[in-house]
Design a protein around this nucleic acid. Structure first.
Length: 485
RNA sequence: GGCGACGUCGCCAAGUGGCAAGGCAGGGGUCUGCAAAACCCCCAUCGCCGGUUCAAAUCCGGCCGUCGCCUCCA
C-alpha cells in the first residue's frame, strides 16, 4: 500500500505524491520562543518528527523546515495587543533577542531530549524581515493589501477562497467576531501584514511604510517559499492554528504568487490535562522540563505515539505510568536481543524468524502508510517483542536470527519511531557504578551458593530500592536500572 | 450563537460494512530457593434510541455527554 495522508485541505485521506520524485519539502509551524516548551509542543513536534523519519525511511530525501517565531506574535489577534516577545522581555528586563536566545536553546534542549531530529533549517522570523517586506510589497502591488497609517492589512474580500482550509465564510467571521474591530481595517476579518511601531517599541524595523514589525502570519509564507519553493509538499502545524494562522498564510501566499502554498496540510490535535484544555493563559500548562523530572522523555514520546496524531491526547499520571511500563516491556525485549548478539550458532536466518520479521515489518508499514498510524505500528512492535522473547527462551537460534530481530527493532522502533535508542539505559552504565554492581552481584552469588537466602535477598531488595533490579537467569544474574526509565 | 471533532474492556488506545489490534492493570498457570523478567491461558459487542443492509463499532437520523475552534496558544 502506498502512503496515504489526511489532508486538512479537503478533509480527506489522499495518496501522497511528492511534487518532485524522491524529494519532500516539509514546513512545520515552530514555537514562539517567549517561554519554555510544554507538552503541547511535545505532541506536535514528536508527531511531525515521526512523519519526517518515516518519509526518510521510505527513501525520500526530506528537507524539514521549522521556523522560530521571535517577533510579530501578538498577545491577541485583533492585531492590537502587544508583541509576546517584547512584553516578556520588558518584564524580565532583557533584550528581546536575549530572551529569544534563552528560550530557543531551551526549546532545542527539550526537543533533543524527546529524540526529535533537528529540522534541516530553523529560520527565525527576525532574520527574514526583507523577505517579508518584499511579500507585502507584492501584495500591495497586486491589490490584495492596503496601507493605513503606517500599517498594512490584507484584504480578505479580495481573496474569495479565504476560508478554504478551515471551512469558514468571511460573513460568519464578521458576525461572530467577539473582538473589537480595529477601525483601520476595511473589513473586520482583514489581518495585519505590517504593524506600525512607535519609537518606544524596541523590536522594530524600517520599511517602505515607516518603522514597524511584521504580522505573525507572514513569516511562514515568506520562509516556507524561500526554502522550499511554492508550492511545497507538506505544511504541518497544530489544529488550533488552522484558523486564522494557516488560513492567512494560504491567502497571502496564493495571492502573491498565484500558486497554492502547500499541497498537503497536516494538523495534529490538541493536548488536554486531566480532561481540560491546557493553555498558557489558563495556568495549567505542563512544561517539559518539569515533566522530565518525573518521566523519562522517551516515555513521554512513547505515550504520544501510542495515540494518533489527529486525536486529542489527555495527560494523566495514570496513563503516563502505564506508558512507562509498556515502553519498559519493549526495551526489555531489545535488551535481551542485544545480550544474545553474537551468542547464536552459525547459520542463516531460520524461516520462522524470517517470516516473523517480515510480518512485523509489513504490519508496521501498512500502519504507517495509513496516515501515520503510530498506535497500530506500535502494536506490530509488541507482537515482534513477544515473538523475539519466545525465540530467545526457546534457544537454538542462530546469530543471524538475533541480528535480524535486533535490526528490525533498531530500524522500526529506533530510526522511525525513535523510542528504541541504540544504547538502552542499563547499557550506558559504566565505570565505578558498574564495578560496584558487579561486586554486589558476585557477593550475592556466593550467599546463594551457600543457601543464605536472607542475605542474598537483602542485597537484591536494597539494590531494588536504589533502582537496580536484579534478574536471575540460567546464564547468570543481570541487572536493569529502573530509575533511569 | 456559528463551525468541527469525539464517545470502543477498570485505565490508555487501534479499528470507518463481514466474526473487536496492542499496551497497562487484574485473574489462573509455567519457570524460579523466593523474586524479577519472560512465556501460556482468561478478561469488551463498541454512549442511548431508531433506520438502511444478508451483514454496522463502522452508513443515515435523533438524543445525551465530552472536547476543541470562532480570541494568544503546538
Amino acid at each position: 500500500m502506498a502512503l496515504h495522508v489526511f489532508n486538512s485541505l479537503g478533509r480527506k485521506r489522499e495518496e501522497f505524491q511528492p511534487l518532485h520524485e524522491g524529494f519532500v519539502g516539509m514546513y512545520v509551524c515552530g514555537p514562539t520562543v517567549y517561554d519554555h516548551a510544554h507538552i503541547g509542543h511535545a505532541k506536535s513536534y514528536v508527531s511531525f518528527d515521526v512523519i519526517v523519519r518515516y518519509l526518510r525511511y521510505l527513501g525520500y530525501q526530506v528537507r524539514y523546515v521549522q521556523n522560530i517565531t521571535d517577533v510579530g506574535h501578538l498577545t491577541d489577534d485583533a492585531d492590537e495587543g502587544e508583541d509576546k516577545i517584547v512584553r516578556r522581555a520588558s518584564t524580565q528586563r532583557l533584550e528581546p533577542m536575549e530572551l529569544v536566545e534563552t528560550y530557543t536553546r531551551s526549546y532545542f534542549e527539550d526537543m533533543d531530549a524527546l529524540g526529535n531530529v533537528r529540522p534541516d533549517i530553523s529560520p527565525r522570523a527576525s532574520g527574514h524581515i526583507p523577505e517579508q517586506i518584499e511579500l507585502i510589497k507584492e501584495l500591495i502591488d497586486k491589490g490584495f493589501a492596503y496601507e493605513v497609517n503606517g500599517s498594512v492589512y490584507f484584504s480578505v474580500e479580495k481573496f474569495p477562497e479565504y476560508g478554504m482550509l478551515s471551512g469558514r465564510r468571511i460573513e460568519e467571521l464578521v458576525e461572530g467576531a467577539r473582538v473589537e474591530v480595529n477601525p483601520e481595517k476595511r473589513n473586520p476579518a482583514d489581518f495585519a501584514l505590517w504593524k506600525r511601531a512607535e519609537p518606544a517599541h524596541i523590536l522594530r524595523w524600517n520599511s517602505p511604510w515607516g518603522w514597524g514589525f511584521p504580522g505573525w502570519h507572514l513569516e511562514c509564507s515568506a520562509m516556507g517559499s524561500k526554502y522550499l519553493g511554492q508550492p511545497f509538499d507538506i505544511h504541518g502545524g497544530g489544529l488550533e492554528n488552522q484558523f486564522p494562522h494557516h488560513e492567512s498564510e494560504i491567502a497571502q501566499s496564493q495571492a502573491a504568487h498565484g500558486e497554492p502554498l502547500a499541497r498537503y496540510w497536516l494538523h495534529n490535535n490538541m493536548v488536554t490535562v486531566g480532561g481540560q484544555k491546557m493553555g498558557k493563559s489558563l495556568g495549567n500548562a505542563i512544561f517539559l522540563k518539569d515533566l522530565f523530572r518525573r518521566y523519562d522523555p522517551l516515555v513521554v514520546r512513547y505515550f504520544i505515539l501510542n495515540s494518533h496524531y489527529r486525536s486529542p491526547l489527555d495527560f494523566t499520571d495514570e496513563a503516563l505510568s502505564a506508558a512507562e511500563r509498556g515502553l519498559a516491556r519493549l526495551h526489555n525485549s531489545v535488551r535481551a536481543l542485544r545480550r544474545a548478539l553474537g551468542r547464536g550458532s552459525d547459520g542463516p536466518v531460520s524461516p520462522e524468524v524470517q517470516r516473523t520479521v517480515d510480518e512485523a515489518r509489513a504490519a508496521f508499514s501498512s500502519a504507517m502508510d495509513d496516515d501515520f498510524n503510530t498506535a497500530a505500528a506500535l502494536a506490530a512492535l509488541f507482537d515482534l517483542a513477544r515473538a523475539a522473547n519466545t525465540f530467545l527462551s526457546a534457544g537454538g537460534f542462530t546469530g543471524a536470527d538475533v541480528e535480524a530481530l535486533e535490526r528490525a527493532f533498531r530500524e522500526l522502533g529506533g530510526a522511525v519511531l525513535g523510542i528504541v535508542p541504540d544504547e538502552l539505559p542499563d547499557e550506558a552504565v559504566a565505570g565505578l557504578e558498574e564495578d560496584l554492581i558487579h561486586l554486589l552481584i558476585e557477593l550475592r552469588r556466593e550467599f546463594r551458593a551457600n543457601r543464605q537466602w536472607q542475605e542474598a535477598d537483602a542485597i537484591r531488595d536494597r539494590l531494588a530500592a536504589l533502582g537496580v533490579q536484579l534478574e536471575d537467569k540460567p546464564e547468570g544474574t543481570t541487572y536493569r536500572l529502573e530509575a533511569a526509565l
